[in-house]
């Protein structure tokens, strides 16, 4: 922030703390109500009703769930490694939340204004894997261990195409900063990055599903094979922390997609020129609408597709997605070379 330079240190710290409080509050609220929205949409997509008992239209259901989770018995298995077992859900949640600090929600609202936004998100995704793999190991049960191993190998192999498809975006913007990425793509010939980088977008979308362990790539918590995967031995609020981490990382991925490929808070120049009244919409609302669409897509896909087999999952990453993202990278390089 340009204003921050002239402020004394304690005021600056106070401003950052207020920003963190706003972002945390908004996202925890969103994560709770995404659970409600997911149950409702999944229900309606299967011609059911979804939750509707607690409060009007079941709107108080997330609060009821929270209270239930808080009052449940906190079980630590006798076979478990106690310390690791207690740390693991915190790791997952922390490294999911930290990602929010480098994402700009508004042209001038960003908690940590670092130049390496995209790389930091990738690094924290890599660290977040440890939460899952340690949860799997420390539970002392074979289902948990298998779930943790599956999750780790899945996230490892999908991180490569994810970063390669992001490399195309980074090359196009010539910057790691998410704000620069938005500004460059809005003023470019195509307006938004989806049109030149449709391959990269598809690869990123699939990897986003795999990175957040969502259906159809929810093998680590495949109910039919592994009870609940790495969450099997967890109960009460520790299990709630895992779910919170999953939903927040879903939001991070949706934010990344809408910022890197759909122009973030801005409309492409051709749309803004054709319909000038769009400029009156507040930027954060535009970003939120795009994010809500992708969250809906996450739920929609979960309602529709069956789960992949594990060898299909692996071969899809290494044989299809990585070559596709490399081709995407070449296309971006060609565009840059032609100077479009």
């Amino acid at each position: 922030m340009a204003l921050g330079e002239s402020l004394p240190l304690h005021l600056e710290i106070l401003i950052v703390l207020i920003k963190i409080a706003i972002v945390l509050g908004v996202f925890l609220f969103h994560a709770a109500y995404t659970v409600y929205a997911e149950r409702k949409i999944l229900g309606r997509m299967q011609a059911r009703l979804g939750p509707r008992e607690v409060g009007p239209y079941g709107l108080l259901q997330p609060i009821a769930d929270l209270v239930k989770l808080l009052f449940k018995e906190d079980i630590v298995p006798a076979e478990a490694h106690k310390t690791l077992f207690k740390i693991a859900p915190l790791l997952v949640l922390t490294f999911a939340i930290v990602n929010l600090s480098v994402i700009p929600f508004h042209p001038s609202f960003i908690i940590a204004d670092v130049n390496l936004g995209v790389l930091l998100i990738l690094a924290f995704a890599g660290l977040g894997t440890y939460g899952i793999i340690l949860a799997g190991y420390s539970s002392g049960s074979k289902y948990s261990l298998l779930g943790g191993l599956r999750s780790a190998s899945q996230i490892l192999s999908y991180e490569i195409p994810l970063s390669l498809s992001l490399a195309g975006v980074i090359l196009y913007a010539e910057s790691f900063h998410l704000r620069d990425i938005v500004e460059v793509q809005v003023n470019s010939l195509f307006g938004i990055n989806v049109f030149p980088q449709i391959l990269g977008f598809i690869v990123f979308l699939i990897c986003a599903f795999a990175e957040t362990n969502r259906a159809p790539f929810d093998l680590p918590e495949a109910e039919s094979e592994l009870v609940a995967g790495y969450i099997t031995e967890y109960s009460g609020f520790r299990m709630g922390l895992f779910f919170l981490g999953e939903y927040i990382s879903m939001y991070v991925m949706a934010l990344l997609i809408s910022i890197c490929y759909f122009g973030g808070w801005a409309f492409p120049w051709w749309l803004a020129n054709a319909l000038p009244f769009l400029k009156a919409i507040p930027p954060t609302l535009v970003l939120a609408l795009k994010v809500y669409f992708f969250i809906f897509l996450f739920i929609w896909v979960r309602a529709t597709f069956p789960r992949y087999r594990f060898d299909q999952l692996m071969s899809m990453s290494w044989k299809i997605l990585i070559p596709l993202s490399l081709i995407n990278f070449l296309i971006v390089a060609l565009i840059k070379w032609l100077g479009v």
């Binding site: 930091l120 690094a123 890599g126 660290l127 780790a152 490892l156 970063s163």
Partner: peptide, 16 residues
Amino acid sequence: AVQIIVYVGAILIMFL
């Protein structure tokens, strides 16, 4: 960032 992505995020997980 590269240290954490490559070493911590990938290679050490293989050892684990």
